Structure formats: structure tokens, C-alpha cells
Measured scan of single mutants.
Amino acid sequence: DHDVVPEDKFQETLHLKEKEGCPQAFHALLSWLLTQDSTAILDFWRVLFKDYNLERYGRLQPILDSFPKDVDLSQPRKGRKPPAVPKALVPPPRLPTKRKASEEARAAAPAALTPRGTASPGSQLKAKPPKKPESSAEQQRLPLGNGIQTMSASVQRAVAMSSGDVPGARGAVEGILIQQVFESGGSKKCIQVGGEFYTPSKFEDSGSGKNKARSSSGPKPLVRAKGAQGAAPGGGEARLGQQGSVPAPLALPSDPQLHQKNEDECAVCRDGGELICCDGCPRAFHLACLSPPLREIPSGTWRCSSCLQATVQEVQPRAEEPRPQEPPVETPLPPGLRSAGEEVRGPPGEPLAGMDTTLVYKHLPAPPSAAPLPGLDSSALHPLLCVGPEGQQNLAPGARCGVCGDGTDVLRCTHCAAAFHWRCHFPAGTSRPGTGLRCRSCSGDVTPAPVEGVLAPSPARLAPGPAKDDTASHEPALHRDDLESLLSEHTFDGILQWAIQSMARPAAPFPS
């Protein structure tokens, strides 16, 4: 592969990997390779389809078979030569091979799209000592099968071997295949498990690692696999990028399955594409389908809103127990993405979901129960707010008499603000006073009005108090039968009158 990737590009890729991570280095090298001529790309395919690569990765054979028959990708048995050289000459001794072996032994695996480039050397060096003999053996194999790289107009793939297949390693990572398949204008990513390549439709969760975000852009890794992070704060999961590491605690105790298979379609829109997988259930989501939507993949363990709600429900009964003089119970939860139609709101002032922060849900004790107040519409209280300059209440639009249902020339009671006709409430011909108009209920007259088809109010509507207090003497005590009587009149003013009279009014101040 030294004929494909020059030394300066190799060093530039290593520097970019240390600065921005393996995914960015892979993407940059792939983009550079696509700008080369067809001879360089053909050399790339020839390096990929060597015999030892085909033996190690069985899924490469179907890719090789898909090439046109007129494309010669065979390799000479006596060494490598550029395709432009007409004579089959043995190339001179390859010093770059020693360079590659020494550099890969030092860096474990470079971040390139060629056999030198995919593992994360920093994480491997940190986690190597417990498994040094086995990992050293794996390093000797890295130059042979560490990076199976493929690129063409139909298929483009980048393979990364790992030393996680050490025997006896619980939940060992089998390997990473960062794979971009450009077929019919689409893009897919796969993962390699035990020599087999699994596409998103049959993606397997190998051991402790999972394909957290099938994305090839942005600074985030394709698999949430930063070796420096180790395990999740809650004892979460091992990262795919942690090559040759000792077994780590796999999943939280509440995880239903340690080796679950995540779905390959969004649980909201039932469509495929780039998904984020939940650590607590097999569901996966688009970032845009979450509520609120996320802009980037959160670091650490992530769970959907259903799993978060289940966790909150487990903690909430203990938080609601009476604990005198104790601060509110704080339950730190990872930043969760909410699927459509589901929402768990945190306290005000918290950062938005999706940031690399930890939301704190506070379970406050329930407030003391209070008697429910009568629910009145805002339009129902409008007549009470229509007060004239002299303190006389004006008529609201649409006000109707509670007896006849007519809204023409209605009066407004100064005591309960109900609309009424003087002739309907006082049919006996009582003279109307000039000021202080009161309806039949507030004036103490319980004589029913002779209106055909309208039920008369119940005599129990009024329960006047002592006459010594004029204001308190007109406080009506309405009961269920009074409400039914008012409802039978089918008037809004009657219902409003009952609601206003049912509310307690402050006692009249004593004259000074």
C-alpha cells in the first residue's frame, strides 16, 4: 500500500487522527484517494484483494465477484509491481515495509483507509498491559489484515481490525468495519463480527460495544468508541475503539438485554438511515425525530424517553415518601432524547437536551391539597369587569335574561352582576328603583315568574340570613337542586349567576 499512500500523506493522516480522531482521518484520506487517478484506485483494489485478505475476510469475495470481468485485479505471486511496468521484474528490497512494521508496532494501528489505518492507538496503548502477550500477537497480524480498504464507483468500504477477539475476553470487541457502500446513491455502514460483515439490516451488537450512531460526518466517531472515555459513568459499556482492553462492566443492572439487537429503522417514522440506538431497549431513532430533536450524538450512555420514564417511576415512589426537613431528592440522569409524543421536562434553567451534561430531575413533595375552585371561562368573567365610571356595571355583549332568554333592554344586578328583565323577575308590577337594581334572587323575592315553557326556580334557592346585616342577608345558599333548576333554563347567565354566588365573597367592612 506504500505505492498507493505516500509517506507524507501517511504522516498527515496520523497527525489528523491524533488531533480530530479516526473518523475524520478516514474521511480525509478517502476524499484524497478519490481525487487520484484511476491507476492509484486500481492499485488500491489490488492491494485489498490479496489472497491473505480474501482468506481472512470471507465477505470480500462477493465484492470481488461483483467487479466487471474485464477488470484485472489479480496479484502476481513473485511480488508487487506497478501496473504500468511491462516487465515482470522483482521490485527492489522494500524498506517501507520495515517502516510500516515499526510504526504500526509503535502506534498499534494508524488512522488511514489502508491496512495502516483504523484502530485507535492511544486507547490501545492505555489498555494494553493486562493483555500484552495476546495483543502483541495481534499486532503482528495487523499489517496483514488490519485495514481492508475498498473503493469503487459501486462499493466503497473501509475495514478496521481490532485485537478484541482475544480468547477469554468477556464481551470482547470482535472488530470495527467502517463501511461506506455507495449503492444507488445511498450510504450504509456496517460492522465486522468474527470475520463476517453485518449491514444495518442485520447488524449484531457484538459483546459490549454497539453501533451508536451510523454517521460518517462530524467530529463524533462512527461508533461511540473513545478509548479514553473507558466505561460509562454508571458502569455503562465498553467502547469499540478500545482495542485489546480488559473486560469492562457491560450494562447497567436495569438493562433488559446485554447482547440485544437494535432495530435498523426509526421507532417514530419507521424509516432507515442514520440512527441513534438506545442503551436500554432495542429501539433506534433519527436525531430529527426525537422531541426535542438533537443536533449531535450525546457522549456516554444514552437512553430513550421510555427508558428514562421507567427509571424515574422506579425512583419516584421512594422520593415521595414523607421525609421531614430533607432537601428534594435529586436523581442524576443521562441526557435523554425524547421520541415524538413523549416529553420529560427538567427543571427550568437546565441546558437543552443533547448537550454533554447531566440533567437533574428533582422530585419535590406534593403540595397540600386544596379545595378545587369553580372553573370559569374568561368570557364568563367579562360582565364582572365591565364597570362604568360611576361604579355601575355596563352590559356585556350577548347578555340575556335568565328567565325569558331575551337580551333586549336587559338590566344588570348590582349584587350578582346577572342580566335580567324587571318585568320577568317582578311581574307583579313592583316599581323599579332608580339605583341599586337587584334581581329577584338578590332582592329576596322568590315568586316564580309566569313564563310559559320555563321551569320556575326551586323555592330553596334563597336562604336569607339575619336582617340586621343587609349585605350578609342576601347571601344565597345554592344546592344541587338549585343548579339543576338553573340548568333547565338553558341560559348561560343562569349558570354564571350560580357560579358567582357559589364563590365566597369577603364580608362587608363594618362602618367606622
Rank of each mutant, 00 (worst) to 15 (best):
G241T: 08
Q242N: 10
P247N: 14
A251R: 12
P253R: 12
S254N: 12
P256A: 09
Q257N: 13
Q257L: 06
K261S: 06
N262Q: 10
E263L: 07
E263Q: 11
C266N: 03
R270F: 15
G272I: 00
L275H: 14
I276P: 11
C278A: 11
D279A: 13
R283I: 13
H286G: 13
L290A: 11
S306W: 09
V315Y: 09
E320R: 12
P324F: 13
L333V: 10
P335A: 13
E343A: 08
R345G: 09
P348Q: 14
G349C: 07
P351H: 11
L352D: 01
A353I: 04
A353H: 14
D356Y: 09
L359F: 12
Y361G: 08
A366P: 14
P367D: 03
P367N: 05
S369Y: 12
L373E: 12
P374F: 13
G375Q: 13
S378C: 15
L381V: 11
P383V: 05
L385N: 10
G388D: 15
P389G: 15
E390R: 04
N394R: 03
P397G: 13
A399H: 04
R400L: 07
V403F: 11
C404W: 02
D406N: 11
G407E: 02
T408M: 13
D409E: 08
R412E: 04
H415I: 05
H415V: 04
A419V: 09
H421P: 02
R423Y: 15
H425M: 04
P427V: 05
G429D: 06
G429Q: 10
T430C: 14
S431D: 06
R432S: 10
R432A: 04
G434K: 08
G434L: 15
T435V: 10
R440F: 10
S443R: 07
D445N: 06
V446F: 10
A449R: 05
V451T: 10
G453A: 06
G453N: 10
V454E: 00
S458R: 05
P459Y: 04
P466E: 04
T471C: 12
S473D: 11
P476M: 15
P476C: 03
A477M: 14
D482Q: 06
E484K: 01
E484I: 02
L486W: 08
S488A: 07
E489A: 01
T491M: 00
D493E: 09
L496F: 03
Q497K: 04
I500T: 05
S512C: 14
